[in-house]
Design a protein around this nucleic acid. Structure first.
Length: 875
RNA sequence: GCCGGAGUGGCGGAAUGGUAGACGCAUUCGACUCAAAAUCGAACGCAGUGAUGUGUGAGGGUUCAAGUCCCUCCUCCGGCACCA
């Protein structure tokens, strides 16, 4: 059981005036009534742009997977923050969009269904109902009318529509935007030479009109696949036998014996398979540069930057002398980020995979070499392969011609050269690369330095510039570098680590891919969306690599794709659906999109940095290219939260049995206390253990506030004590600033301090109302209840957010510290902004200070206005 | 290995270079009570009866003044990792 201590309501018969008002705070009575009222009056409804002149403010928490376990206290941490911001912004006069929905496709929902032997659809409906009941108990100000569920066909219809948009697009590298695939076809069928500037990771081919027109539909299809933003291709993928599906890199974690699936912990291996992909690499540069214009935590940006992995360098061509073949007939291109070290190259190292392809085109590798290649290729298949401790290699008997010196340098196969990056071949520069150095040492290869001494500053012209790394690097323009490189058969290129995203899962519970193949293998789009996921009872994995949909005869017969979309498809654009959630004609009306523009504040976990966040940015950019959205980025500000750990400091998990259920907390303490504690427990971005003991302090605070306010309801005064008024205005100031900074814990601390300070003072209805109002975002039920008790005519939810009076923020007297040689020895009270000489004088008269300075020589006195005074004495 | 972030009482945590430990929990004492709970009041970094000394992961430094800035190191968390 979760409860460490049962809260008992106050049993005290207080004042004689208690006859008029209920002195006992009972959230069970207050909260459900207000929640029903809010729902009935729809006061948190976000208005359509047509119906308001208010400025929009869009705040969003990442929507949950409605898992079978129900809500977990981690969820409300995010939603409490969203709600605090939303309620404050509403009072500040914004038309606030604070929606909620469910991300219900994907593995978790399907596995829950399989384990519990219910249809995923039923399971999702059940779980959603549970979530919703739990969420509503916490009193979040969501606009429930905009609720979405990614598994509703009214929703996934548009997921499919966007997929087709991607399928029917290519990326124009000159215009730097997506364009319809037809315009690419048009450029092929123009007269004369086709001028294709389309992005592709494969070999670029353009076609002239005659050639294009002579091609079969299948040939055309194959040609266009290389450009489409959603395309079918073959690739090595992460295959999970147990789950019978392909997984994305971010769905895999390191297990004890190699990589395993994040969900279930099953082993993952590499496998070649035909797959749907999204060409996210086309947007690598925009995904990178877009980071500059958004207010995200630096570390999340860094994660994305690392993931995209841009590196600028050069490709350089080396001619090869292969034994038994004409010299220079073959060649290899290397990729390097250090073209300036070209003259330090003493060998070439190629990947085993590249060597394999050389054998295929007629290179006669001897047995020893062939065996080595086989071994390394096998090693590379292992996900956890690491050669950093043991670099090995073998000489190929092939020599390359150095393009600068024309000298013969040996070509080696090395296990540290990876097939998936660059060209799979590197130039070995032992003098300026640690790995190359290690390798050269092991195999006794020469080391040549190209960092020359100062005197040789400008001894070279033309390609000779490359003989000195400093001179090449000192070239100002990229063009100059390019010109030098061209002389040695090189060119500047940019490479990215990021790969295209696999967009298919061999699972049942996902959006069907709206395409089918006719009997000739030609792909057609489904014209009438949605392509509804067929109902079936056999949705367990086939294990063959085909999706469970292959088990459905009619589906298979119609030629539909048997794979479904991955879990992140629906979440890649949901932020747009909320803008116009009930639109039957389009995913969101452009007028609404133009009004809301983008999510102003997005709250969620940083673990989505290389998944959901990157994918949504990508989709958003594609839609931007078509003018269907108006901003380059979907989420202007991102705020990440820490985890709520269990009180034992571990992660909450069913496995440990240490999960705190918000329902029980609400039942014991009330929704307001739960929310307040979540806000108070610590900095929003940090992971913090839940404490069954500490929460009581938040409940006590609410009771004090309740009691104080009730006493004001009964004997109200016209004017507050000045110090109470000041305390409340300071609180207004602090809370306003702290909510803006997501520093909820300090805002709550100040509120506690305030109630402690004003408890014994006279406070007017007007002033306590101000306090209730700024606390409303945190504890909406009790503050609204008390606000009404005080007889306020206006609704608390629509009252204007108060401004702290500047005059009241100023203190009459302040206490400042007096230091002797930097050590605090006393304090004095002064009026703010007192003249410096008066303060200095007062300090030196202070009793404690006199003891220290008596008879000593004062070297100097430093006064920091209204802060501190430091007397520096000798000895 | 590289790139971020962090390390403060018994615990969660506060501190624009300027009175370290706000606020809350726990603990101790007191009031109320037959009693307990609740509530209210007080104490509460460590050492010392006390004056006082000392103290923000460790060690140096800058400064009148350092939790905060700089250098070296340690530990923890997150990310990337033979990416050429």
């Amino acid at each position: 059981m979760y409860m460490a201590r049962v809260f008992k309501p106050v049993q005290k018969k207080t004042a004689t005036k208690a006859v008029h008002t209920p002195a006992i705070y009972d959230p069970k009575k207050i909260e459900p009534i207000l929640q029903k009222k809010w729902e009935k009056e729809k006061i948190f409804k976000a208005l359509s742009s047509k119906k308001t002149k208010k400025k929009p403010y869009y705040v969003l928490s990442m929507f949950p997977y409605p898992s079978g376990a129900g809500l977990h206290v981690g969820h409300p941490r995010s939603y409490t923050a969203t709600d605090i911001v939303a309620r404050k912004k509403r009072m500040e006069g914004y038309n606030v969009l604070n929606p909620m929905g469910y991300d219900a496709f994907g593995l978790p929902a399907e596995q829950f269904a399989i384990q519990n032997k219910v249809h995923p659809k039923k399971a999702v409906a059940m779980n959603v109902a549970t979530f919703e009941k739990q969420l509503k108990k916490l009193g979040f100000s969501f606009d429930w009318e905009r609720k979405i569920n990614t598994t509703d066909f009214e929703y996934y219809k548009w997921t499919q529509w966007i997929f087709l948009k991607l399928y029917n697009s290519y990326y124009d590298i000159n215009k730097k935007k997506a364009l319809p695939i037809e315009s690419l076809v048009k450029s092929f069928t123009k007269k004369g030479n086709a001028n294709v500037s389309a992005f592709t990771t494969e070999e670029v081919r353009s076609f002239d009109k005659k050639e294009w027109l002579s091609m079969s539909p299948l040939q055309k299809q194959e040609a266009l696949m290389k450009y489409r933003l959603a395309y079918e291709g073959e690739a090595q993928v992460n295959w999970c036998e147990e789950l019978g599906t392909v997984l994305a890199n971010d769905e895999i974690v390191d297990g004890k014996d190699g990589p395993v699936s994040e969900r279930g912990g099953y082993p993952v291996t590499k496998k070649n398979i035909r797959q749907w992909f999204l060409r996210i690499t086309a947007y690598a540069d925009r995904l990178l540069s877009g980071l500059e214009q958004i207010e995200w935590p630096q570390y999340v940006k860094e994660i994305e930057r690392n993931w995209i992995g841009k590196s600028e360098g050069a490709e350089i061509l080396f001619k090869l002398n292969v034994p038994g073949q004409d010299d220079g007939k073959h060649s290899v291109t290397v990729f390097t980020t250090r073209p300036d070290t070209l003259f330090g190259v003493t060998f070439l190292a190629i990947s085993a995979e590249l060597a394999e392809t050389w054998i295929k085109v007629g290179w006669g590798a001897d047995k020893k070499v062939a065996a080595y290649i086989e071994q390394v290729v096998k090693d590379h298949q292992k996900n956890d392969f690491d050669a950093s401790q043991n670099k090995t290699g073998i000489f190929t008997n092939i020599y390359a011609i150095h393009p600068g010196t024309q000298e013969k340098i040996p070509v080696w196969i090395a296990n540290y050269v990876l097939p998936g990056y660059g060209t799979g071949a590197v130039m070995g520069v032992p003098a300026h690369d640690e790995r190359d150095f290690e390798f050269a040492q092991k195999y006794s290869l020469p080391v040549v330095s190209v960092i020359s001494s100062e005197e040789e500053k400008f001894p070279f012209t033309g390609e000779g510039v490359l003989k000195n790394s400093n001179i090449f690097n000192g070239l100002k323009s990229q063009e100059a570098k390019q010109r030098i490189l061209e002389k040695v058969g090189g060119k500047l290129v940019t490479r990215y680590k990021m790969r295209d995203a696999i967009f298919a899962r061999q699972r049942y519970w996902g959006e069907p891919i709206p395409l089918y193949k006719d009997k000739n293998g030609v792909i057609h789009e489904v014209k009438k969306l949605p392509l509804v996921l067929p109902n079936t009872t056999s949705y367990e994995p086939t294990g063959t690599g085909e999706g469970p949909l292959a088990n459905i005869t009619s589906w298979k017969k119609a030629g539909y794709e048997t794979n479904t979309m991955p879990g992140w498809a629906g979440s890649s654009w949901y932020h747009l659906r909320y803008m116009d959630a009930n639109n039957k004609k389009f995913f969101a009306d452009l007028k609404e999109v133009k009004y809301w523009k983008q999510v102003d504040t997005y709250l969620g976990g940083a673990e989505h940095a290389t998944g959901h966040l990157l994918y949504s940015r990508f989709w958003h950019k594609v839609l931007k290219d078509y003018g269907l959205v108006v901003t380059e980025e979907p989420f202007k500000q991102l705020v990440t939260h820490g985890l709520i750990l269990s009180s034992d400091g571990r992660k909450m998990s069913k496995r440990w049995g240490n999960v705190v259920n918000p329902d029980e907390v609400v039942a014991t303490y009330g929704a307001d206390t739960t929310r307040l504690y979540i806000a108070f427990m610590g900095p929003y971005g940090e992971s913090i253990p839940w404490s069954d003991e500490s929460i009581i302090g938040c409940r006590r605070f609410i009771e004090r506030l309740y009691k104080k306010t009730q006493s004001i309801v009964v004997d109200s005064v016209d004017k507050s004590d000045i110090s109470a008024e000041k305390a409340i205005h300071k609180l207004i100031d602090k809370i306003t600033k702290d909510i803006n900074a997501f520093s909820f814990n300090t805002a709550v601390a100040k509120a506690m301090e305030t109630i402690n300070n004003i408890d014994s003072l006279q406070v007017s209805k007007k002033d306590i109302s101000l306090m209730l109002q700024v606390l409303n975002p945190f504890i909406p039920h009790v503050t609204e209840f008390l606000w009404n008790e005080l007889g306020n005519k206006e609704k608390i939810n629509t009252a204007i957010w108060p401004k702290a009076s500047k005059k009241l923020l100023i203190e009459d007297t302040i206490t400042i510290g007096v230091q002797i040689n930097g050590k605090l020895r006393g304090t004095i009270n002064i009026k703010p902004n007192s003249p410096e000489n008066e303060v200095k004088e007062a300090a030196q008269k202070e009793e404690n200070i006199v003891k220290y300075i008596d008879g000593k020589e004062i070297i100097k006195v430093i006064y920091v206005p209204n802060r501190i005074i430091n007397i520096v004495i000798k000895g």
